[in-house]
């Protein structure tokens, strides 16, 4: 019971303060559940993000459902989902009544602008840890894939779904090939 309550509290706080898209909350989830609490290992977290990104809908919601499931099966998934949805749902319900006053408030604007560099730093921190681990594996093909994916997504505006499909295929065939190679030796 204590675990579910903790899961709820963490997801609720993350969701409440996660401005600016799914990857921010996913980075924060990694920091909490992988680095701090060690409830999930890093590889599994990356797999979860991959699945969340491959499904329709918000990465934040999909990711939180899978993290919840990993931690506490169906009940964990439900707790995690509710905790993630509740903050934006309540905030929007309240704001929709007097929204122009809110969106034109200079202090609100300043606060949101102030979040940006910190959000960028949180993501940079996660990227550095994840990137180092990909490089440490010393599989040249995956290092190349990481750099190439970055280039086509950032500079080429290529649809991420396409990148996911191609990467999954390369991963599939590469693992088949190396498995065969090992057998022959």
């Amino acid at each position: 019971m204590k675990k579910y309550w903790k899961l709820f509290r963490i997801m609720f706080t993350l969701s409440l303060f996660t401005f600016g898209g799914g990857y921010v909350i996913v980075s924060l989830m990694k920091e909490r559940f992988v680095d701090k609490l060690k409830w999930i290992d890093e590889e599994e977290m990356l797999n979860i993000i991959a699945i969340a990104q491959s499904s329709p809908g918000a990465v934040a919601v999909n990711g939180s459902v899978l993290v919840g499931y990993k931690i506490g099966k169906m009940r964990g998934a439900a707790v995690s989902l509710i905790a993630t949805i509740l903050p934006p749902f309540l905030i929007i319900s309240i704001i929709s009544v007097g929204y122009s006053r809110f969106s034109e408030n200079p202090l609100v604007k300043a606060f949101l602008r102030g979040l940006q560099p910190a959000v960028a730093a949180v993501i940079a921190d996660v990227v550095v840890s994840l990137g180092i681990n990909v490089i440490k594996k010393k599989e040249v093909i995956y290092i190349i894939m990481m750099v190439l994916s970055f280039v086509v997504i950032y500079f080429g505006n290529v649809n991420v779904m396409f990148v996911i499909l191609v990467s999954a295929l390369i991963g599939f065939f590469y693992s088949r090939l190396s498995a065969k190679g090992e057998k022959r030796c």
Partner: peptide
Amino acid sequence: MKGILAGLRPAIVAMISSAGLSIF
């Protein structure tokens, strides 16, 4: 499945980096 997931991981790191760079 392990093969597919190993292939996806570098792409996910790239996606997160790309989002991070935009926000930066």
